[in-house]
Design a protein around this nucleic acid. Structure first.
Length: 444
RNA sequence: CGGGGCGUAGCGCAGUCCGGUUAGCGUACUGGUUUGGGACCAGGGGGUCGCAGGUUCGAAUCCUGCCGCCCCGACCA
């Protein structure tokens, strides 16, 4: 997560955003100010009702002190729009205060009924950007910019292809006018929403009365966006690349990029060559570890580092030294190559790039092979139950149809792709006319 | 809250149906020999068998109640 956070943070800052931190507790009254917003989150809020514990006079141990009830309950933030917009009211008065481009890294709580490691946990770390703009066009541009940054990060850093699209009204963020999404496909054929960017219109500005004077001295409500990705990305990373031998990490995000395993054990000659290689790698900014742990044998170490997804393994023993070479293995394909001692660092540098690229290409091929066009409901069900993945089908644009299909098949509309071609067709369920295909899938 | 499953050594498990030696195996631990794909030999320790009642000469095992965890359903990034 460290490298994920650092890189995203860098990309946010490069686009003019600054970090800030807002309170964990949100007074209940704030949350209720935006109607759609509270409707979406009310069912999954952790609520603070008391501020003190005491010893049970009947000997039952620690209990909540009934006399310490709060006048107004506090909600552990499920997201921070309300408390941030309440704050923005005091910060924004003039067009000169805009745009306001703030991001925060924070833990949030959504009291889910069912949790799933990495993908859906009651508490999770995420970043949430909250921006305020003078015009609608500028806010929409910001929303699209952040979707693009997420897509770029997913593809260039996580080696995970994503589809950029917008959500249907039904799947939209509570309180948004439009939700932009990046959708990924996991190896089991299920889709995963990997990041969202919301155009909030003036909904929160109106709910929290955030106005500014424009250049013509006319008072207007400000336009808003919010956008976020979470530790869910770690789940996405794991489920996109891993295999039966364990994790497979893209070199750009691997905490450890190269591990060197001495075999049979360390010796002065091996140490000498390894030291040279490590210096050369470090000079290139490559993270490397020399695994001199005496407890385990080389075979164990090989397996262990594969399990942990280390992209490149270098093995070196006396036999190699006699031949003046290292054995270099890549995690993604398991291929081994003997490489001369001189120039090994350059070889590894290129290999890391090759692995990064190969992971992306492999995932892209899989994803593209799992987008299936269907034109009737029978085929639709067959693809969902068999092949899985995204199903590109015509939709009549109504929430009723979307929900009916969800009820019948458990598939939801993941997004309306931004690059969807205009094409006359008929809704697979109702036969009503449709102008473009949307992507359905069973999703996490 | 409904349906299903599981609680036995630090961790992972067998034993429970059909009650009966001292409750066992793997791993971890210690020592030595090893080390080119998850080593071998030896050693010793480690347990209120989830909790509470009950049946019985005798309960990890049968009965009743309770507690905890996991999976599936309604929710969701």
């Amino acid at each position: 997560m460290g490298k994920i956070r650092d890189q995203l943070d860098k990309m946010f800052k490069e686009t003019g955003h600054v970090n800030a931190y807002f309170p964990l507790f949100i007074p209940k009254s704030y949350l209720s100010k935006e109607a759609a917003h509270i409707e979406g989150f009310a069912k999954e809020c952790a609520v603070v009702t008391h501020h003190r514990l005491m010893n049970d006079p009947n000997g039952g141990g620690l209990i909540v002190d009934p006399d310490a009830k709060l006048e107004e309950e506090l909600i552990v933030r499920p997201t921070s729009e309300t408390i941030i917009w309440d704050t923005y009211r005091g910060w924004i008065h003039s067009y000169r205060d805009l745009p306001l481009l703030i991001n925060q890294w924070a833990n949030v709580v959504r009291w889910e009924m069912r949790v799933r490691l990495f993908l859906r946990t009651a508490e999770f770390l995420w970043q949430e950007g909250h921006t305020a703009h003078a015009t609608k066009a500028e806010a929409v541009t910001e929303t699209e910019l952040m979707q693009n940054i997420y897509a770029q990060f997913a593809q260039e850093w996580m080696a995970m292809p994503v589809i950029k699209g917008i959500k249907t009204p039904n799947e939209r963020f509570s309180g948004a006018d439009e939700t932009y999404t990046i959708e990924a496909l996991m190896q089991d054929g299920k889709a995963l929403q990997a990041g969202t960017s919301h155009f909030l219109g003036q909904n929160f500005a109106k709910a929290f009365d955030v106005k500014f004077l424009n250049e013509n001295n006319v008072e207007e409500y400000v336009w808003a966006t919010s956008w976020g990705v979470s530790t869910r990305l770690m789940g996405a990373l794991i489920m996109t690349h891993s295999d039966d031998d364990g994790l497979v990490l893209p070199p750009k995000l691997a905490p450890l990029q190269v591990v060197i395993v001495p075999v049979p054990k360390t010796s002065t000659e091996i140490d000498f060559e390894v030291d040279k290689l490590m210096k050369a790698l470090k000079a290139k900014g490559i993270t490397v570890k020399y695994d001199t742990d005496q407890k385990n044998r080389p075979g164990f170490k090989f397996a262990e580092h594969e399990l942990n997804g280390v992209p490149v393994r270098v093995a070196v023993g006396n036999r190699d030294l006699e031949k003046g070479q290292f054995e270099i293995a890549r995690r993604d394909t398991k291929e081994k190559q003997f490489v001369p001692l001189e120039g090994a660092a350059e070889y590894i540098e290129q290999l890391l790039d090759a692995i990064q690229d190969n992971l992306y290409q492999t995932a892209l091929k899989f994803r593209n092979n799992h987008i299936t066009k269907v034109d009737n409901f029978e085929d639709f069900k067959e693809v969902l139950d068999g092949k899985g993945g995204f199903v590109a089908a015509h939709w009549d644009g109504t929430t009723e149809t979307e929900e009916k299909i969800k009820e019948l098949t458990k598939a939801t509309i993941r997004c309306i792709p931004l690059d969807a071609e205009l094409e006359d067709g008929k809704d697979i369920l109702t036969g009503q006319p449709s102008k473009k295909r949307v992507l359905y899938a069973r999703a996490y």
